[in-house]
Write a protein that binds this DNA or RNA. Structure first.
Length: 505
RNA sequence: GGCCCCAUCGUCUAGUGGCCUAGGACACCGGCUUUUCAUGCCGGUAACAGGGGUUCGAGUCCCCUUGGGGUCACCA
């Protein structure tokens, strides 16, 4: 098969934002397509009307765009195999179900889900393993249609051929499923909609998908799909089931972890792609990191741009073992990426971060934001920048409230010790700042240096009291930058408030 | 529980029978740099799950045990 004809797809169901595991699956598919100039298809599997979450297609598309994982066919862009929403392809599924019915590879079945659940339950109670028993004799098509016309709940089941099926997996090798494990399953629900298995197989064929890359939780589905492909005389695509991504505690990463954390008063972990965006990660770093969850280049390199991933990725180098999502390592990756990302790109990503957070920093112009970014060397996430810039959007009264200092420890450690040496330094430097004209980071830095040289003070003896005075805390960007960013008026006003707060105490 | 998959430092992994005295990265510990936080730099601790084979030789191949995971829907 020619590489150019490689067609892969990502087929999310619209139940919320894009999950991080899903993102890794998209990435692998996308990489495979981009590497050989193949086609990456996005298909929306919205056949479950009960679980459909409003607007989640839009959210998934947005997450994909943020990651830069563009699709060649699918929602918005369309394509030769449109529509790309399964909810708009119902007659296709019905036509193929009809074929299976007529060839005897599928049959109508009349059990209700309540009846089936009851027999499953009794099997559980009696500790027997449950398996659906094929009715005998099988209802005829005419009987099925009559029941349907009479308003009975009717499904269509696929008749498994009763022989073992081997999945040739690109990652796992050959996996043989014993025939006894493969029972007849529903392909058309009583509401007339197809199940995942059926819609997936029909669409993969109709969309000429050549390679299926999906999480290992789908491995057991594959024999069913292969059986249907044979019955329908479809081609069987090449399969690859990458291992699953777990949280550090070894459980599956789940949205519920967020709710649980909130309930327990912890900060919720990032689970969906959107969470990482909100938390201030760079998509480049996230992509780089998740690529490595299962894949490795073979040498000692770990940092790859998207282009480098495209060049070096191959499904053969994907491992078989489940990976844990190590947030510390992600953070380290993000730190590295922030340090090496060009200022313009970093600024754009930062603005996106501020926008999704509706940050008060949005009031600053690009030049100011660029200065903020530059002043925060060694940033780990954009959140760090916002934290370090908080004093810029606070009012003077918030930094030095009338009721007392917001950070008494800082006041004690920096200002009050040595009989209030910090306060005396502030008084002395305030006079100089008041009269200072060159209000730039460099100019201010020099002013402080000069003061230190003249007074014999160390840099920290001056910078820390200033920092506390203008921010109320011991943490801020380098002092020259902090003063310059704040501006002369606010700086002097805050120092005065700080000094009078002492007198008031 | 049945079936299926997996098994190298705490974590992600390199390793395809001799190059392994098991390499890298993150975390951790120690040191250095430093006006705060953070970055950065240097160094260190740390793994082949256990037991049998096969072989001159096994982390690498086979079997068993143990452990972990997935899956058993009219969800996808």
């Amino acid at each position: 098969m020619s590489d150019r004809l490689v067609r892969v797809r990502f087929a999310p169901s619209p139940t919320g934002y894009l999950h991080i595991g899903g993102a890794r699956t998209v990435l692998y598919n996308w990489l495979v397509a981009r590497k050989v100039g193949g086609t990456f298809i996005l298909r929306i599997e919205d056949t479950d009307r009960d679980r459909h979450v409003e607007d989640s297609v839009g959210k998934i598309l947005e997450d994909l765009r943020w990651l830069g994982l563009t699709w060649d066919e699918g929602p918005v862009v369309g394509g030769p195999c449109a529509p790309y929403f399964q909810s708009e392809r119902l007659d296709l599924y019905h036509a193929h179900a009809r074929r299976l019915l007529e060839s005897g590879d599928a049959y109508y079945a009349f059990e209700t889900s309540e009846e089936l659940e009851a027999s499953r339950e009794s099997a559980r109670v009696e500790k027997r393993s449950y398996k659906y028993v094929r009715p005998s004799p099988l209802p005829t098509i005419a009987q099925g249609e009559a029941a349907q016309a009479a308003g009975k709940a009717v499904v269509v089941r696929f008749k498994m051929p009763g022989e073992p099926i081997t999945v040739h997996d690109e990652i796992l090798g050959d996996v043989v499923m014993p025939a006894e494990e493969l029972e007849d399953f529903v392909i058309l629900k009583s509401d007339g909609w197809p199940t995942y298995h059926f819609a997936c197989v029909v669409d993969d064929e109709l969309m000429r998908v050549t390679h299926v890359i999906r999480g290992q939780e789908h491995l057991m589905n594959t024999p069913k799909h292969i059986a249907m492909q044979r019955a329908l005389k479809f081609a069987t695509p090449s399969y690859a089931h990458p291992p699953i991504i777990f949280s550090m505690d070894g459980t599956k990463m789940s949205k519920r972890d967020k709710e649980k954390a909130i309930k327990e008063g912890r900060t919720p972990p990032e689970i969906e792609v959107h969470d990482f965006r909100v938390s201030g990660y760079l998509p480049e770093a996230l992509l780089n990191f998740i690529a490595l969850l299962g894949w490795s280049s073979g040498d000692d390199r770990e940092h790859f741009s998207v282009d480098e991933l495209i060049e070096r990725f191959s499904i053969e180098r994907v491992g078989k073992t489940n990976a844990r999502f190590d947030r510390d390592k992600l953070l380290a990756f993000n730190t590295d990426w922030c340090a090496k990302t060009p200022p313009l790109r970093l600024l754009a990503a930062f603005k996106d971060f501020l926008a999704v957070n509706a940050s008060p920093l949005l009031k600053f112009d690009d030049a100011m934001l660029a200065r903020l970014l530059a002043a925060k060397k060694g940033l780990r996430t954009f959140r760090d920048v916002v934290d370090s810039a908080r004093f810029l959007v606070q009012r003077d009264e918030e930094v030095w409230p009338d009721g007392g200092p917001i950070n008494p420890d800082a006041v004690r450690k920096v200002l009050e010790k040595n009989e209030g040496a910090g306060y005396r330094t502030l008084e002395a430097i305030l006079a100089k700042l008041d009269a200072f004209a060159d209000w730039t980071a460099e100019g201010l830095h020099k002013l402080i240096e000069t003061y230190c040289a003249a007074s014999g003070a160390k840099m920290g003896d001056v910078a820390q009291p200033l920092r506390v005075a203008i921010t109320g805390s011991t943490v801020s960007p380098p002092i020259g930058d902090s003063l310059a960013l704040l501006g002369k008026d606010a700086t002097c006003a805050r120092i005065r408030r700080c000094l009078s707060a002492r007198r008031g105490a």
